[in-house]
Design a protein around this nucleic acid. Sequence first.
DNA 1: ACTCAAGTGGACATCTTGTCCGTTTGCAAT
DNA 2: ATTGCAAACGGACAAGATGTCCACTTGAGT
Lengths: 222, 222
Amino acid sequence: MSDDEQRGQGAAPVPRVGGLLGDLQAADERPVAPRRRADAERNRTQILTAAERLFAEQDPRTVTMDRIAKAAGVGRATLYRSFPDPSSVAVALLDEHERRLQGQLIYGPPPLGPGAPAGERLAAFYLAMLDLLERHLPLALGAETGAARFRTGAYGFWRVHVRTLLVAHGVRDPDPLIDIALSPLSPELFRFQRHELGLSVERIGRSLTAFARRLLESGDGD
Amino acid sequence: MSDDEQRGQGAAPVPRVGGLLGDLQAADERPVAPRRRADAERNRTQILTAAERLFAEQDPRTVTMDRIAKAAGVGRATLYRSFPDPSSVAVALLDEHERRLQGQLIYGPPPLGPGAPAGERLAAFYLAMLDLLERHLPLALGAETGAARFRTGAYGFWRVHVRTLLVAHGVRDPDPLIDIALSPLSPELFRFQRHELGLSVERIGRSLTAFARRLLESGDGD
DNA sequence: ACTCAAGTGGACATCTTGTCCGTTTGCAAT
DNA sequence: ATTGCAAACGGACAAGATGTCCACTTGAGT
């Protein structure tokens, strides 16, 4: 769960995600420490548990606020108190899993963490994200609906990471390339390749690895 | 409009799009030639005209079947007779504009058409698609909702084209790379880069050009 | 002119959304 | 323990969207 979930919340609070980014943004608000009531905490857990099951069971795009509330055994208004829409529930769930990878990118051993050439780090990042998508595709798809993936804190984190790699490699104008480099990781695209085309994770992974190396080839800069 | 719009239609006919692909699939049904009634044709025109305006005026994701029907001055059931959901209306509109580009890719002069190296053709394709996105972004965004872009006939056409380029360049396992190479053209991504990051079309275009050349560099095969 | 299938559009039942507001409940101060 | 109060809860409501049904209208062959 996000650290900033301890903050007091307004009428329709959007749970902030994205780890480091969220920490920085909420830093000045944290000391107030308005801790959540026990029943609220319990309900939140029920909501997340029920939602994770729902997203896995049916088409993640058809999960509705009403059904989440019913499945969690809470009223609709209670659910709205914590989340503005179904996708933000999925985002909150995904956030837990993404946090580990975020740590590995910064502090972990190469090639995922610092120390390896940019091209190798990008390739390793692709493989790690593929693994994440394979294991949590329903959540990733559920997080797409409503406010797009570009708005999530996690996406902001991936952007910062990829930008670092591009700059380290000496790319001339890195900014437009950031999101281009991230676009092959779209959950919707993964679903298509994986379940409509029937490609294996390994095959996609090999292509992405070659893709990453080609994109950030050692030798020339730009 | 699609050639296959002359076909007879069932209860909730999905207008097929995508030119060549559509033609091939409908080939055996065409000779029946059950031509449409005049009032149906008139309504269809009204629907498309009104819808194009609606998609441009408001957030394309919020355009509803009810509003399209109201704006076109027809009943809801009449609208459902031709299109199953709002996104398929957008797809039909987009299809007209994409058809010209499809022709140029096959019969036009290089670098868009045959004759240029694969990398240059891919770069030219990217630029042409960017131009299309810039001019018809609302429609492209409207076409995303509901059945995803991967299901449209047009996307199938782009896949065939890119696959041709990859094979011509001698890529070992082209199939997983097809959709990876197409992923930077996601309308949602374009909207983000263009209107949230504030990048110019030219800047995105330069990045994509470099990207295409790097991806299909002359010299090595794979 | 006549016939009939194709086409039309109002209406209906269902579902979802977001918010309001009276009631309940946790927690801390007494 | 008791009590007071803000936080939390959840039933209910109005608005709006969806997909389908069906009685009526209309275009186009005979």
